[in-house]
Amino acid sequence: MTPAALAQVLWQARQPGQPRVSGPVCDASTLPDAAAAYAVQDQSLRWLGPVGGWKVGAAGPTQNPTHTPICAPLPAAGLLASGLALSPPRGALRGLEVELALRVAHDLPPQQQGLGDALLCTVFDAVLPAIEWVDSRLAGGQASPALLRLADLQSHGALILGPARPLGPAEPEPDLPTLGATLCWNGQTVASTVGGNPAQDLRRLVDWLIGHTARRGLPLRGGQIVTTGSCTGLLWAPEGAVSVQGRLGSWGEVGLSLIS
């Protein structure tokens, strides 16, 4: 199956009332490598509309190949403000995780291949607490082959953003190993962590993303949001109406209501 064909299958699964993708297309051999998965992402943008941001993460902080960062574009339509009421469609997953997000300060030149030794604030002008809603267009959900999940925008549903806090040269940069995060629903704390983001190294993530997006012909643009992986782990909200609140250390709070 070509990247364009798989992208169209995933797009169709996003439509109201349509089943998730199953059958032979979900076999681990469908995509040979990450480059093929990224090609599906690129093709998906034909239907998903403009890129409002990116999600990037890594399984660990080292140069081990299993810790290589991965990413996905975030449709602008799925970047939502804190306090909204979200009604996932019937059968959707209800995964939630608290994340640290950054706002891109200005368009990056296509030739820029990384952050280098520059301060974060030369590329990003704000930090935002975020909650990602994790969903899937694949019948196997999180049990699906990793490359298929990557092609499916790394299981992205929507990103809920709290108030932006300015990031400047006089302020300390966010530090993932010491960053605290909590996730609550219906007033009960379901996750409380310090240093819970497995990537650990924020600069490594954004350095890789800057180069990766430039090489794909999609360099970061001013106003886009970059979210940097789960700080609480992925938790599954119960069915029914759920009031959700997240806190990201001293960077602020973000919340939403899930409606059945």
Rank of each mutant, 00 (worst) to 15 (best):
A59N: 15
G162P: 05
P109C: 03
P172E: 00
L31E: 05
G162I: 07
P19A: 15
L159H: 05
A59V: 10
G141I: 04
V9W: 05
G91K: 09
L150T: 08
S155N: 12
V190S: 11
A143F: 02
D33Q: 08
P145M: 13
G141V: 05
G162S: 04
G78S: 15
C121E: 06
I225M: 06
L108W: 10
R216M: 13
I131N: 02
D33I: 03
L235A: 08
E173A: 11
R46D: 13
S250H: 11
W47V: 00
V98N: 10
D152Y: 09
I131G: 06
R203L: 04
S250G: 08
V226Y: 03
G249L: 02
G196D: 03
T62N: 08
L96H: 07
P177K: 07
A34W: 09
S155G: 00
C121V: 01
G223T: 00
I131C: 04
I160G: 10
D207R: 00
A126H: 04
P73W: 07
P73D: 04
A76N: 01
L138H: 10
S192R: 14
P69N: 11
S155M: 15
L84D: 08
D175W: 02
S29F: 00
G23H: 13
D117C: 01
G217H: 04
V104K: 05
S29Q: 13
V194A: 04
T193L: 06
C231G: 04
L84S: 10
E253P: 00
G17Y: 11
